[in-house]
Design a protein around this nucleic acid. Structure first.
Lengths: 185, 185
DNA sequence: TTAATCATGTAACACGTTACATGATTGC
DNA sequence: GCAATCATGTAACGTGTTACATGATTAA
């Protein structure tokens, strides 16, 4: 679901090809949702079939031809309809899935030092994610200063803010977990 | 993947039927992973076929017969093999998916008051999740005091700790987002 | 000259969700 | 009398992943 509406949302900013959408998707939404190109193409043709998008074939020389996708009125309606569904949003927010916690839950079956090294690796990885997100945040901030689509980029900043507090919380948690396991750095 | 190994992990504590596994799964791992019964049954028969589990038919009167699943040596090996795969764990930790953020990202297309009410609903829902998790934490703490399987319940507490800091971070984020949107409570 | 980028996709598989079916028993 | 619990599943569908295929262009 989210992938579909993510694509609609991006196409609402302007027409794009599947390839460009893939780039844009991973650059902007990538830190909280990933889209495989194969899935993106599948969703795009499905949405074209249901009339949410139109595709224009663009013939190119030296490069493969491409298809430019554009949002239709129905597509725009589908987007705003989805956004207006607050119930659905809350229901989705409840469906948290965390594969890493699954491993920690059963880490008692491991020799203690392996569990510790697992958490150490996780801790490091959180730090890296935070740094990477810093770039995203700065890019958004710059963009916000240049473009005056306040109604939009306000929310982008809020999303970036989430990422930062989320990773910071994970980092602090990993520290506390490690000290609980008697790991003194 | 995680569902499969979650089931293996629970069966490592003791043999159970699919139905019991479903209950145990949602009670213990439910706050970070959900399992539909239909999926659980499918995974169980698949794992039986690959020799990770054995099933014993238990005939009952007045109630439907049941199948008691038990971990085999191969199953136990599969579990520890999965736990030892630190690379895989980190790779999975990178695949965050957050359907709610997808909506916030595009919330600029909504009238401002609707976006605000979306975040307010989210905020409330975080509070409820925190309360519910408090029960889980207390249950784990009690259990920890009674049973002395320290090597195991230490990790359960760490997982519960994660839940708490995660929901608290979400709550604080929602507050900051709301004040950024000019919502004074 | 090797790899990456551009640009499209197909096929098969894995995992997750929804809806349905059965039929006795227990608690309100 | 009605709903929930016990206990199993099947079928169909939706979504996500992996691997593969094509073939020119461009930068290291």
């Amino acid at each position: 679901m989210s992938l579909k509406y993510g694509l609609l949302g991006l196409l609402n900013y302007g027409s794009m090809t599947g390839y460009e959408l893939g780039k844009a998707f991973n650059a902007s939404l990538g830190f909280f949702w990933q889209g495989q190109t194969s899935q993106i193409y599948r969703e795009l043709s499905a949405m074209e079939r249901s009339g949410w998008l139109t595709a224009t074939r663009v013939v190119q020389e030296g490069r493969p031809n491409k298809k430019l996708y554009a949002l239709t009125d129905e597509g725009k309606q589908a987007l705003t309809g989805w956004l207006s569904d607050a119930e659905g949003a809350i229901a989705e927010a409840l469906c948290v899935r965390n594969a890493f916690l699954m491993r920690v839950f059963f880490a008692g079956e491991l020799p203690p030092e392996r569990a510790v090294s697992l958490l150490r690796a996780f801790r490091e990885q959180c730090g890296q994610a935070l740094e990477k997100l810093g770039d995203t945040s700065r890019a958004i901030a710059e963009y916000s200063a240049l473009v005056s689509a306040e109604s939009r980029n306000k929310y982008w900043r809020i999303v970036a803010m989430f990422g930062e507090s989320f990773y910071r919380a994970e980092l602090e948690w990993a520290d506390r977990a490690l000290s609980l396991l008697g790991d003194t750095p």
